[in-house]
Design a protein around this nucleic acid. Structure first.
Length: 300
RNA sequence: GGCGUCGUAGCUCAGCUGGUAGAGCAGAGGACUGAAAAUCCUUGUGUCACUGGUUCAAUUCCAGUCGAUGCCA
């Protein structure tokens, strides 16, 4: 089997654009399976709020990497890359086309182009750095980074604590500067990749987002969030649709206000996704209902 | 009907004793290598309700009109 016999079709796009049903239609047509690239649908406790595929949808096409983790499990892009590649290796034995669908751009990139091998985060180092951040502010992080990795300090967004924390945690853990470890070397993949983006006019997309949030509430999102409230500090739950309802649990907002916030935050999330995917010129863009055109593109 | 308060950016509102206006949110754009549905950056000209008046100059003072709201009848 050569590289030409293996094709990964990536279906990306903003939240609520209609990725799931398009992917299912495509997978049925090519009689193949779907790998999810959605950093929140991994978690089985989060079903309603992540708009995970329904039981009915799951029964139509075999899905992978959906609900395969607990929110208690630690997970990250690198592990996703490993898991997805291993999965594809086995799936390609039976299928020449595999569908990957999701909205997590970083995760999709990791599978398509690889991600540098860096040590897993050390909880203790991370804790120490966070403490510095909370007690001494971002300036302390900026200073240390300038000292340990002046090259990265030059180009990183120095006002973004997440970036600084991550770089420092690597510097501290390895004793080497983060930028020297960040080679950004493209990985060789033994399959072809076709990137398809789904989009809709902004006002239509926003209407779909609003409607879907209402539908989630009807489906019991409030109770799902309430049941996860004790775990609210887990990273997996730092997620649109949950954190707003945690505020409601704590009496910080009304339910209506929380729902309104979910809609707003979902729209902003969609915009960030579009910014991410749009700058990648490898994507060909379609409307979610242009199934026939998409099929032709895949066969081309 | 009388008296009072209010009418400023899509929304909520700031604008001290007159020199044509500014925040938050929304919206828009962008960044992004193990937190990524995360995290962060940039971005505010609008008949200051309308019509007159006073003034060198009015969003700001005065009168009237319209609208909103409260109290009294």
């Amino acid at each position: 089997m050569t590289i030409d016999d293996r094709l990964l079709v990536v279906i990306a796009g903003p939240t609520a654009v209609g990725k799931t049903s398009t992917a299912i239609a495509l997978a049925q047509h090519f009689n193949t399976e779907i790998i999810s690239a959605d950093s929140r649908q991994f978690f089985r406790e989060m079903s309603i709020g992540t708009a995970a595929p329904s039981m009915q949808e799951l029964s139509l096409v075999k899905h992978h990497l959906v609900h395969h983790l607990s929110i208690l499990d630690g997970y990250n892009v690198s592990r996703f890359e490993t898991d997805a590649l291993a999965l594809m290796e086995s799936l390609f034995h039976q299928h020449s086309v595999i569908i990957m669908v999701g909205g997590s751009g970083l995760y999709i990139n990791a599978v398509c182009h690889g991600i540098d091998e860096l040590p897993d985060p050390d909880p203790e180092i991370r804790r120490q750095l966070k403490e510095i951040f909370t007690t001494q502010g971002i300036a302390a992080l900026q200073q240390e980074l300038t000292l340990l990795d002046p090259e990265y300090a030059e180009k990183v967004d120095m006002s973004n604590p997440a970036r600084l924390l991550r770089a420092l945690e690597i510097c501290r853990a390895t004793g080497i500067s983060y930028s020297t470890l960040r080679t950004n070397k493209p990985r060789h993949r033994n399959f072809r990749i076709l990137k398809l983006g789904l989009e809709l006019p902004r006002d239509v997309l926003y209407q779909r987002i609003n409607n879907r949030v209402d539908a989630m509430m009807m489906a019991g999102l409030r109770d799902e969030a309430l049941s996860l409230y004790p775990c609210r500090h887990l990273n997996a739950l730092n997620t649109v649709g949950y954190k707003e309802l945690f505020d409601y649990c704590e009496g910080l907002t009304s339910l209506d206000h929380a729902v309104e916030k979910i809609k707003i935050h979902s729209r902003r999330y969609a915009k960030r996704q579009l910014t991410w995917f749009k700058k990648d010129s490898e994507y060909t863009w379609f409307k979610p209902d242009e199934i026939d055109q998409i099929k032709i593109k895949v066969l081309a």
